[in-house]
């Protein structure tokens, strides 16, 4: 992942069946989270992402979950089970996973307000770790 490089964006289907892409959130700080329903660490870090999203939404943070290689039905079931409110895209062709050279799941990528990559992190993170990651970027307005 090239820090400082423009974050690649691909149009995808949303959980609700509409269109969505990372580029839709230009102007906000976006924490892209690549996940899949079969991935246990993804499931376990999801509550932290939800809490992060809820507590930082007002500061201009968006958590963007991008399901890798699964159907909308599978992702929807997962999102309902965990009462997720942050936006989720369905990436059946795993394009984001390839573009960000994910070497495992979950992988998170922090994108600044101008659409540039700040940092990528692999593996499960806690709420505190996510908060530490996003705080400086949220402050840099």
């Amino acid at each position: 992942m090239l820090a400082g490089a423009p974050a690649q964006s691909f149009p995808l289907e949303t959980l609700g069946g509409g269109d969505g892409a990372l580029a839709d959130y230009r102007g906000k700080v976006v924490l892209v989270n690549l996940w899949a329903t079969w991935c246990a660490p993804c499931r376990s870090e999801t509550p932290a992402l939800e809490q992060l999203y809820r507590s930082n939404q007002g500061r201009g943070l968006v958590v963007l979950g991008i399901d890798q290689g699964e159907s909308r039905a599978a992702a929807t079931k997962f999102a309902h089970e965990l009462s997720l409110t942050y936006p989720i895209l369905i990436d059946t062709e795993q394009r984001y996973g390839r573009a960000y050279a994910a070497i495992g799941l979950p992988t998170s990528v922090l994108v600044d307000r101008t659409g540039h990559i700040v940092q990528g992190v692999d593996g499960e993170r806690t709420l505190a770790e996510f908060q530490t990651l996003v705080n400086p970027v949220l402050k840099a307005q």
Binding site: M1, L2, A3, A101, A102, I103, T107, Q119, G120
Partner: peptide
């Protein structure tokens, strides 16, 4: 600034 990329 990314440990995945460093590993690669």
């Amino acid at each position: 600034p990314d440990q995945n990329t460093l590993m690669n």
